[in-house]
Computed example of a mutant assay.
Amino acid sequence: MSEDHQTMHRVFAYGTLKRGLKNHHLMARARFIGVATSVPHYRMIAGDYPVLFEDGAGLLPVSGELFEVDDATLIELDKLESVGDLYDRKTVAIALGERVTDAFIYIGRPVAWASRGWPPFTARDRDGRLHWPALAE
């Protein structure tokens, strides 16, 4: 294996990491794969950005974007998301059209968010998936 070999990782972005949003600059070395949907269903809260949870009522699939990132980018994303404190990084099934693949997703740790008081976010796209708006959507 060469020294410059990078392991590539698929990451599902559903919030500020999406194209055109405030943290997308962290994806500068990422390869956009396509618009995708989470196979697992989640609930979402949102303030300045959205947070997904695996528990609760009204769980729905989530609309987002699938990227391929290198090791260094994944480390930066883990820092942004405060993995182990605010979020957990998990591997889940993501649908890209008719194809399903595994990708990392950042899921909120309920105990870390309980005191924030952010409201439930329920906006959906035309297919009924939770969809955190990008700009003026």
Rank of each mutant, 00 (worst) to 15 (best):
M1K: 13
M1Y: 04
S2L: 09
S2W: 06
E3K: 05
E3H: 10
D4G: 00
D4N: 09
D4S: 07
H5C: 01
H5A: 01
Q6C: 04
Q6S: 05
T7V: 03
R10F: 03
V11K: 04
F12S: 06
A13M: 03
Y14I: 02
G15T: 12
G15F: 06
L17A: 08
K18D: 07
K18W: 02
K18R: 15
R19T: 14
G20P: 11
G20Q: 04
K22P: 03
N23P: 15
H25S: 10
M27R: 01
M27I: 05
A28W: 11
A28D: 10
A28C: 11
R29L: 04
A30I: 03
R31N: 12
R31D: 10
R31Y: 10
F32Y: 15
G34N: 08
V35A: 10
A36E: 00
T37W: 00
T37P: 02
S38Q: 04
H41S: 12
R43K: 04
M44V: 11
A46I: 08
A46D: 14
A46E: 12
A46W: 09
G47I: 03
Y49Q: 13
P50C: 10
E54C: 07
D55L: 05
D55M: 05
G56S: 13
A57D: 14
L59G: 11
L59F: 07
L60A: 15
P61H: 10
V62I: 06
V62R: 05
G64L: 03
G64W: 06
G64A: 05
E65V: 02
E65A: 11
L66R: 01
L66K: 00
F67V: 05
F67W: 13
E68A: 09
E68V: 05
V69L: 09
D70T: 03
D70Y: 05
D71K: 07
A72M: 02
T73N: 05
L74N: 09
L74Q: 13
E76D: 12
L77D: 11
L77P: 02
D78E: 10
K79F: 00
K79A: 13
L80D: 14
L80E: 10
L80F: 05
E81A: 07
E81I: 03
G84Q: 13
G84S: 08
D85Y: 11
L86D: 13
L86K: 15
Y87R: 11
Y87Q: 09
K90R: 13
T91M: 08
T91D: 02
T91S: 14
V92R: 14
A93S: 10
A93V: 01
L96Y: 02
L96E: 08
V100C: 00
V100N: 00
T101H: 00
T101A: 01
A103M: 08
A103H: 03
F104K: 01
F104G: 01
F104R: 01
Y106G: 04
I107V: 14
G108R: 03
R109K: 13
R109W: 06
V111C: 12
V111G: 15
A112Q: 15
A112P: 07
A114M: 06
S115K: 12
S115C: 03
R116Q: 08
G117A: 07
G117Q: 07
P119R: 09
T122D: 11
A123F: 02
A123V: 06
R124I: 05
R124S: 03
R124V: 09
D125N: 14
D125T: 08
R126V: 09
D127G: 01
G128F: 04
R129L: 04
L130H: 15
H131N: 11
H131I: 00
P133K: 11
P133Q: 06
A134Y: 06
A134P: 01
E137V: 04
